[in-house]
Amino acid sequence: MDAILLQILNGLDKGSAYALIALGLTLIFGTLGVVNFAHGALFMIGAFCAVVLQKILTLQKVVLDNENLTAWGTPSEIKTPYAEIWFGDFGAKLIDYSVPVSILLAIPVMLIVGFTMERGLIKHFYKRPHADQILVTFGLAIVLQEIVKAFFGANPIPQPAPEALRSSVDIGVMLGFAENAIIYPVWRLIYFVFAALIIGAVFAFLQFTTFGMVVRAGMADRETVGLLGINIDRRFTLMFGLAAAVTGVAGVMYTPILPPNYHMGMDFLVLCFVVVVVGGMGSLPGAVAAGFLLGILESFASMNEIKSILPGIDQIIIYLVAVVILLTRPRGLLGRKGVMEE
């Protein structure tokens, strides 16, 4: 039982990332009708906002120590971050909390990246076939990741969580299990809560604001909303920016879980497309539900008991579910009738 609970937690955690990325993807598809293969790159750029801020905060004053030489004969360097020199303990704290603080940087950066991407490239492909959209956005994703690699290298760059949040908690004891039965990292729990808050905020924004109402109306019938004199295109552009920001902050908060590298967007991209298809193209609740569902299924499939019966199932489970869904319910779990159907 404790093993199952642990895998449910893992699944929810994985599902949080899937759901956040898939939410952004489906927002773009639902509003602009664009299949955005550069969406994984937005997740990666968000993560690298955290890397950039950490690099800025840890810019160091270098003093040469002529008395101690390196192994290759040059004076060794004594490095002290400027943040610590200027701000003392506050500076050290700021460096420690650089990942959550990065959200403040990531939101405006991602909005700008989103607007630029939509206005500069994607809007020219609205009336082109989906295949063209996929090709151009996939190409863009490759260009973006190569740019990041040129600046930051190919190796992962560790982004530790704040020291106070690096430990793990014994959830098992809280739920009445034996000691050490269910131990879970604090930051992963924070990520799950964070994802739930972001998802809730996006839904509230679309549900309870006039702007959101117009966007929803535009998603249902773009032409009629346009005929009412509303500039729906501008709102959809803003939604692209919002989707980019949601994905970007998901990337920022993910960095302590796995050190970011230039390729991390591609690692998530295909999975998140499957999530969107399973949830139902254009369905926001579908994307979220499918994200968590597939995260949990993937975790269960990785259990030794399951793998011993079905070897390799952990590698194909998500695609297997997608095949079954596409065969039996092409519109996806919560998709609108008619979408992806004859």
Partner: peptide, 22 residues
């Protein structure tokens, strides 16, 4: 005790690490 093969493409190993605990 056990040898679990993990896909080369795996990124998040949490579901493979969790069973180690018990």
């Amino acid at each position: 005790v056990n040898n679990v093969l993990t896909p080369l493409t795996a990124t998040d190993f949490s579901s493979y690490i969790a069973p180690v605990l018990n």
